[in-house]
Amino acid sequence: MRTSLRVSRASRPSSQRARSGPRTWYGLRASAGAERDVGSAERFILSTSAYLRQQLTPAVDIEAAYDYSSSSAASSTGFERGIARISLIARF
């Protein structure tokens, strides 16, 4: 069983994000924290993301991003991964 605790900086409201044009935002996100498997020591975790977000309609955005995560555990139990993604985001 795995438990984790993450601490991250909250994203700024969309009106304060960096803008590259009308209804287009870009930015970086980062978080750091600790993870502990039951019965083992805590490990440092780092997660970062770069994104470009475009508003398609007043209720729908599309976002292209690259996410990176790593754990500083020993190589036999640690991990490192990168994920490229495209997301549709709906506001209700």
Rank of each mutant, 00 (worst) to 15 (best):
73 A>H: 08
17 R>M: 15
27 G>T: 12
64 A>K: 00
9 R>M: 07
21 G>H: 01
14 S>F: 11
23 R>S: 12
35 E>C: 02
58 P>S: 03
48 T>L: 01
82 G>E: 04
52 L>V: 15
9 R>C: 02
70 S>I: 06
57 T>V: 06
66 Y>M: 05
60 V>Y: 00
24 T>H: 09
29 R>W: 11
78 G>W: 00
75 S>Y: 07
54 Q>V: 11
89 I>S: 07
80 E>L: 03
64 A>N: 04
40 S>K: 11
55 Q>R: 10
48 T>A: 11
71 S>A: 14
62 I>Q: 02
62 I>W: 07
55 Q>T: 08
26 Y>W: 13
64 A>R: 03
58 P>L: 01
18 A>N: 09
80 E>T: 13
7 V>N: 08
18 A>W: 08
15 S>I: 07
92 F>T: 09
46 L>T: 10
69 S>M: 01
42 E>P: 13
82 G>P: 08
66 Y>K: 01
75 S>C: 05
13 P>W: 01
74 A>H: 08
62 I>E: 03
67 D>K: 00
9 R>D: 05
3 T>S: 08
39 G>I: 11
12 R>V: 14
83 I>T: 15
89 I>Y: 07
81 R>Q: 14
48 T>N: 07
52 L>G: 14
7 V>G: 15
71 S>G: 14
30 A>K: 00
59 A>N: 02
5 L>C: 06
13 P>A: 06
16 Q>M: 10
3 T>I: 08
82 G>C: 06
35 E>T: 11
51 Y>K: 02
73 A>F: 06
84 A>W: 12
43 R>M: 05
11 S>E: 14
88 L>F: 12
47 S>M: 03
77 T>A: 13
21 G>C: 03
67 D>E: 10
35 E>W: 03
63 E>M: 02
12 R>S: 12
71 S>D: 14
24 T>I: 13
27 G>A: 03
30 A>P: 05
31 S>I: 03
72 S>Q: 05
88 L>H: 04
27 G>H: 04
33 G>H: 06
15 S>F: 07
25 W>D: 08
73 A>N: 12
9 R>E: 08
23 R>I: 00
61 D>I: 00
91 R>S: 15
50 A>E: 08
17 R>N: 14
